[in-house]
Amino acid sequence: MSLTIIKPGLCDSIQDAGRHGQAHLGINAGGAMDPYAAGVANLLAGNQRCEAVLEIHFPGPQILFEQNALISITGGDFTPFLNDEPLPLWKPIVVRRNTILHFKRLQQGARCYIAIHGGFNVQPWLGSYSTNLKAAAGGYEGRKLEKGDELCFRENTVYFAGLLREGRDFQVLNWRVDMRRVYQDPHEICFTTGHEFHELCPNSQQDLLQNNFIIHPFSDRMGYRLKGVPLKRKHDYELISSGVSCGTMQLLPDGQLIVLMADHQTTGGYPRIGHVVSAHLPKLAQLRPSDPIQFKHVDIQTAEDLLYSQQQEMVILQRACHDHLNELVC
């Protein structure tokens, strides 16, 4: 019950919904950059939302399935192929053993998720499967995947091999997730004001709301650096460090912003201009260097409503995926 990495991608790692409750020890939550895509990948594969998934970046890996598997691929479109045939995104797929999954072109997005029915058989560290590269812990031996790594998956609870037709390498199951609402207006990123927002000069407050910001090449799982009109504070004094979270928009001394992402440090001393709302982290995680961002201010009520409806949809989705799968194989 396993798959083997024939050729590693740029950065392939095991992630889940994150490692919470350890930030006071300097251990960040980590987890999938796009928690929506990772969660939906799991649901489509018949798993719980928080199961371990594979997060990949382009260029993607080449993966050999040693066994028949029920999988799903979500998030960025890297043009997945199984052997010589294209695979769809956001759908459950049964793949035959001894086939190779590979990725041809970067079509859209920045991160792609692969879930396997049953989940990957890795040991949790501090309650999570996520890989913490800095601590070299969690996930698969605490590191990115390398050539020859064999990832075992857990036993199937659904008998899906019967769905494979003779002579076919895979079978796409006939339901899909409509994710358009989550990623609509991809460049419009909502934020709530941070503790130091009002320390910005009035002009800079306007600049933040009216101008586009471009994602800088120095952007990764730790944070997105942005390039735009330099923002100025009314005073220049240094702040004393405090806790930060995923989505916190910090103002660097040169007037540029950095948005902290999944692998951010747990504390920081730069002014907190705002916080990207959780419901827009999936969108942001799929933007790439040189993509523009337009910030839009919302209040906390709106931020919570956006997240609530996104999560509520996931709950409905979970039930639907579960029912569909049961109907098909029972």
Binding site: I240, S242, G243
Partner: peptide
């Protein structure tokens, strides 16, 4: 989720 004490 998390409680992060800092200086102040």
């Amino acid at each position: 989720n998390n409680i992060i004490p800092a200086y102040s």
